[in-house]
Amino acid sequence: MLSRDQVLHVAKLARLELTEDEIERFGGELSKVLDHIEKIGELGDLSDVEPTSHVVAVENVLRDDEPRPSMPRERALESAPDVAQGGFRVPSPGAA
């Protein structure tokens, strides 16, 4: 069972602001899902099994160091919610 503190900790890591309702709900739902997931524990010792992080058996897919045109700045900024001085404006890190 996920504790309230665990839920809040994970939410903070994930930058999600949860409502009281969601904290309650996610705690219960995730615990139930994790109960099912923990069935992979039944498979016992897997220390001899290689983990699969890629199903494609290729290596060294590399790109030549050849420049390709960048986007015009207007293009880069066109979807941004807050633009100033040719850049993406954000609240300053560290500002209260």
């Binding site: 999600l16 602001e17 919610p81 609240p91 300053s92 560290g94 500002a95």
Partner: peptide, 18 residues
């Protein structure tokens, strides 16, 4: 909420994200 998509009103960075 920095480069695309809507952004919620926020005065500080953490709140902007969350």
């Amino acid at each position: 909420g920095v480069r695309y998509g809507p952004r919620a009103d926020a005065v500080d960075l953490l709140t902007m994200y969350t």
